[in-house]
Design a protein around this nucleic acid. Sequence first.
RNA 1: GCCUGGGUGGUGUAGUCCGGCCUAUCAUACGGGACUGUCACUCCCGUGACUCGGGUUCAAAUCCCGGCCCGGGCGCCA
Length: 418
Amino acid sequence: MIKMILKGWIHEIRDLGGIKFLILRNREGLHQIVLPKKKVSKDIFDMVSTLNKEDVIAIECEKRDSRAKDFEFEYLPSKIKILNKSETPLPLDPAEKVSAEMDTRLDNRFLDLRKRKIFNIFKIRSELLKYTREFLLKEDFIEIHTPKIISTASEGGTELFPVQYFEKRAYLSQSPQLYKEMMMAAGFDRVFEITWYFRAEEHNTRRHLNESTAIDLEMAFIKDEEDIMKILENLIHYTLKKLSENCKNELDEMEVKIECPELPFKRIMYDEAVKILHDRGSNIKWGDDLGTEDEKILGRYMKENNIDYYFIKKFPENKIFYIMPDGKYCRGFDLDCNGVEITSGGQRIHDHGLLVKRIQEFGLDPENFKDYLKVFRYGMPPHGGFGMGIERFLMEILKIDNIRECILFPRDRNRIKP
RNA sequence: GCCUGGGUGGUGUAGUCCGGCCUAUCAUACGGGACUGUCACUCCCGUGACUCGGGUUCAAAUCCCGGCCCGGGCGCCA
């Protein structure tokens, strides 16, 4: 008989008197340890009664076929060693006999993460990033890391978190925008960064975090925004295909099926979107950004036409100052999925004079953008890029309705621990 | 920033609208006991809670005011 060692946590103990069942949990899943009184030593049989749920143990055992409904194999122990005890009662139940609220779960996240379904989210997240790197590296992108402690806002807009940097005031970066563009000026041509966004907005919703992650990308020598959109749709197509092929068990356990969207993704012009929205009761004015309700209406419209992923492009030129204007439109785009924005991007302005003019037109002072503007004075190629929220994307893939589920230790309006 | 909903044992809940029959429900957990094929094991016994402060009232988990904590929607965004 071959002896083997199993290590893990005690998920459950079922004591029937003359026979005991011990369910062990580890990263691979659940394993049944069976202890018939007559087939194991008295010491082991008795010591099992002293074990608590979530104790960490190592078991020397023999593997054999099981009669159990839920297990193909079971293990007959010859030795059980307690590696560490768990206290009782537990602050939440990893075996999920009773549910727990999000707040309780997050306060005890390490226990929450012992649940299979929760673990799977992060397994899939890891795979998603693996395939993202795989795809982008194959497409000749260079992975970079840029500073998260910065001296000023890189693009205005959202509020920044101030930090004390020795004797100076600094901020946490809301986006690597400026640095990505610097890398275009540096001649790297194609870069991406898997990065943190820090945003000091006091929002309190299921779709927002104050500390979130993103796949940020920038590429030079593009013709227009379509070059970027093509990379983005191919990236999404590639990662979803790989996930559906290689994460079958995790997806099955989560009862989620990944529908790999067909290429190319639907493009809808802003004008067209506004028309659809008017037909469906929205009072959006031309020039307005789409509100949350507008995005939802559009998402429903797309769903009716069997479309999950769709680009919105040709926005009015007043969207963001650094996006390339194109008549009364601009070369920015959003990628939405089921009514939620998961990416925004576009072709950037590369001409110094035009950029200064745009900054002024947006009511900003070019003096505040001196460092930013310098990059455009010594040979900046045409370029563009996007930022894709990883948690937002995961929410859509895995049909999760709270973004906090998609990050290990969420930071929101109220939570800064654990 | 604006608007809203909530807080009952370790955990998840019932009860709150319409105050009294609440000595607070149920499940799970925890402690003890019985049980040789469980698989949400089962059965018996036990332990354990009204967010805090003030007010109204003969009487407050329940009504009112304030604090603390948390959720959600909008704006903004990813």
